[in-house]
Design a protein around this nucleic acid. Structure first.
Lengths: 334, 334
DNA sequence: ACTGGTGGATACATCGTTGCAGATGAGGCC
DNA sequence: GGCCTCATCTGCAACGATGTATCCACCAGT
């Protein structure tokens, strides 16, 4: 049915291997021969069977990307950047949604998904470093440093601590003293939640402002999580003049709830987030947030992973590049 | 390096084919033999090589999904739903971003991308029906009826006309008479823009309200497109008491711009959109919009495509199921 | 005892490529 | 003229699975 190299070879009057050589840009081919083959390819409409190539060469030229859900804007935007970066280097990306469930994450690391890809980009949410190391085979693996940090694993780091401190410092500079935090629980020290919380605490300490655990509210990192948490906070009567959502979804949920409840933003309460998703710019009021360097993260991660894949032999040290962040001051916290 | 069926066969003391039979749940295998094989698989940590299976069987169990860009929320949410629907039926989804460029779309339809998938889901933006038919090979293809409609192609339809009419009717019922439209140009009749515009016009006509081309502003279907268009409208001095963004991004951009300019929404100007992306619920004020049945679209499309793939032989008529829509009345246009 | 049917297992070819080793032939050099 | 070199091309054997055909027991039926 499909045209194969054999057909092309016959049509061009050369051997199958020569066709293969032409396609793979083998150096020593007479220009006339090459042209003859190319013509035949054109005429027959031949297309390389990537499956066969993969089987023979042992490479699929696909990267796996494991994340919670594409419907979450930050992941969608990150995935888009990753796919572009991969494309530029001749790789495609196969996305697997884990739904933030440990089973799915494990399955993605171990399962058949792996055999389809040359390496994995992984945004762990449910698994910890130990489980990841155990579950991951010998396939190249690069983490996107959202939640897990571990010296044994390649990963691209977000400056969770510093960036959160920068946001907090900005709010403090605006005169805010009672800054609520959404998305972490008092005492968290690991993961994005813990690291961002500690950045917040450090900034408070540096400014000589007391830390009040009552201002720290844990919840799902989604818009409705932020809205609910804000509602609880308002209902509880705890006073606050700013809200720091540990990601933009939380902040946007909080923003929504505050406005619904008749609070003025930023006059009564300032709001800031983390991620700088596209939506933040167009919220009303627009959302002050910190850009963690999404495009840089995507490119570094893809580059690191592809280096691992293509330099299989050389065992080099674990790499953990860190992406630069930048504060985006907008209306919600000027 | 990797464990193959051969290794398992040797370990279990059976033939390679028996291992294959066990894995593929062949009926007639002695339970003891089966157990022996399963044990060996477990011990050796064998995993099916999907590439080899694909080569031999001619199926990749992957669906291609061609869309403009995952960073656009509606596509991201749709992609997420599609991946879930496909997963349930044992297929994976390989996403290709066309960036809304004709070349990329064509390449996706023709190129190597196709050889990796059993069939394609395609959200055409740049190509028209003629070009699609020409470029598409004999691979199963299902369009997501955003922009292109054609009786020769399988597709899942959105009720562009009726849904847009419903939104317009709702705005009219709220007492609005000067409803601006963002995202179409006067005279458009095809594509989502044209169909939605004609729905708008039909609703106006039904209510006996005159159609004013000055209220129709074409622009990119993105947040900043909507913001810019709204700015131009305001600057031009054309009076309007409602804005209908032909998708939510446009409406949210408009919302943003209106609030920036000091307009009260919905008091001065009502705003409505189209798509019901997650963000719409949490905008401030929350956005009135119409849900085109995203999940249903995803499921129908996946189902239709898989039916085509698996029932290759039977040539049946072109199918064009239509998804049900529903109006979501929120604060921006109560 | 012989035939036929069936459960249970196997051998071999094959999918479409690429890696490796080798064949061919035209010059160049002594 | 013979030998070596090197560009150019070819043939064969994989990669790891599955489809087809076949084979071997073993039991039922006559």
């Amino acid at each position: 049915m499909a045209v194969t190299m054999n057909d092309v070879a016959r049509a061009a009057g050369v051997s199958l291997k020569t066709v293969s050589n032409v396609i793979n840009n083998y150096e020593f081919i007479r220009p006339t021969t090459k042209q003859r083959v190319l013509n035949a390819i054109d005429e027959l409409g031949y297309e390389t069977n990537l499956t066969a190539r993969s089987l023979r060469s042992g490479k699929t030229s696909m990267l796996g990307l494991v994340l919670a859900d594409l419907s979450i804007p930050y992941y969608a935007e990150l995935a888009s950047d990753i796919m572009k970066a991969a494309w530029d280097r001749g790789y495609r990306v196969l996305v697997e949604q884990s739904g933030n469930e440990a089973d799915h994450e494990k399955a993605a690391l171990q399962g058949q998904f792996r055999s389809l890809t040359d390496g994995l980009l992984f945004i762990p949410l449910a698994l910890d470093a130990e489980q990841i190391i155990e579950a991951a085979g010998n396939k190249p693996l690069v983490l996107l440093g959202e939640f897990v940090e571990d010296p044994r694993l390649d990963m691209v780091l977000i400056q969770n601590h510093s960036a959160a401190a920068a946001v907090t410092t900005h709010l403090l500079a605006g005169g805010r003293r009672r800054i609520a935090v959404l998305g972490a629980n008092d005492g968290d020290t690991t993961g994005s939640n813990g690291l961002r919380l500690s950045g917040y605490q450090a900034a408070l300490a540096a400014a000589g402002v007391e830390y009040d655990p009552a201002l720290v509210v844990g919840c799902d990192w989604r818009r409705d999580g932020g809205a609910d948490a804000t509602a609880r906070l308002l209902d509880s009567g705890v006073a606050f003049d700013a809200v720091f959502g540990l990601n933009d979804a939380l902040a946007l949920g909080a923003l929504h709830e505050l406005l619904v409840r008749g609070k003025k933003v930023p006059d009564d309460v300032a709001v800031a987030g983390f991620d700088d998703i596209d939506e933040a710019r167009f919220a009303s009021p627009s959302l002050t947030t910190v850009a963690p360097g999404r495009t840089e993260i995507a490119e570094r991660a893809v580059e690191l992973l592809i280096n691992r894949i293509e330099a299989k032999g050389s065992i080099s040290d674990v790499q953990q590049p860190e992406a630069a962040f930048s504060l985006r001051v907008r209306q919600s916290a000027p």
